[in-house]
Design a protein around this nucleic acid. Structure first.
Lengths: 116, 116
DNA sequence: CTCATAGTTTCCTATGCAGCTAATTAGCTA
DNA sequence: TAGCTAATTAGCTGCATAGGAAACTATGAG
């Protein structure tokens, strides 16, 4: 995998389990067990997902007794948002055209189609 | 890799070469040769990058004689933007706290620091 | 010290991608 | 038809990851 930060972040997000973990952690801190519970995954597997998220800077893990509570670190998500924002103009323009096209189709149908 | 659309999109974006290709294609259609030129990559390598982007629905390739012009398809980018948008509130709040903290530091410095 | 709990690390297999070269397909031209 | 150009596919190596089992570390309770 490429070493640059954005690539690492995208790679970390390219897994539904990890995105679900982020969604859970966004609600508040959670232990590894709590994170593992919704998925039918063994602890080591979840632990490795967390490692990927940690390397991407998307979470940090503290220490409270034998627990390692996970906390969301949203900075890389802002980077993603900033990156994708550059394309907003393009998709809004194209989606607009698509809407126009669909509207045309509909108009056409209403014109030469049977009303009722 | 996970099969769901968003995961495939994120995986496709997790490579600086592919993001550069997208940036180039955003300027307008381009042939595979034109896309390969800025990178010191062989055509087959670029061709495979395009395959990944195509599978993610980020580009389509037409046919004009022996050229396969690439065109950006921004819909998956909108999906990414929609996904990341859910976290905006969190990072704005946190970044806000960070700004506050930095401002406090600065104030403190100005208070007990030597004003020249 | 001993045991239990929470997590991590190590080792395994399988899969997928990044890069290359060589071979192949698709379309134009002479 | 042969030959040229554009692009893809096939086959290769090397590396990263997803998943699991087993072993190890770290902390707290008795």
């Amino acid at each position: 995998m490429a070493a640059d930060q954005l690539s690492v972040t995208f790679a970390a997000l390219a897994d539904p389990t990890r995105r679900a973990i982020l969604a859970r952690v966004a609600q508040g801190e959670a232990t590894v067990m709590e994170l593992a519970e919704p998925f039918r995954l063994k602890l080591p597997t979840v632990s490795k997902h967390l490692k990927v998220l940690r390397r991407a800077g998307l979470i940090t893990q503290g220490r409270q007794a034998q627990w390692r509570p996970c906390r969301l670190e949203p900075a890389p998500l802002k980077d993603v948002a900033d990156w994708v924002e550059r394309y907003r103009e393009i998709w809004e323009e194209r989606m607009g055209q698509l809407s126009d096209y669909l509207r045309q189709l509909q108009d056409k149908e209403e014109t030469d189609g049977s009303e009722e």
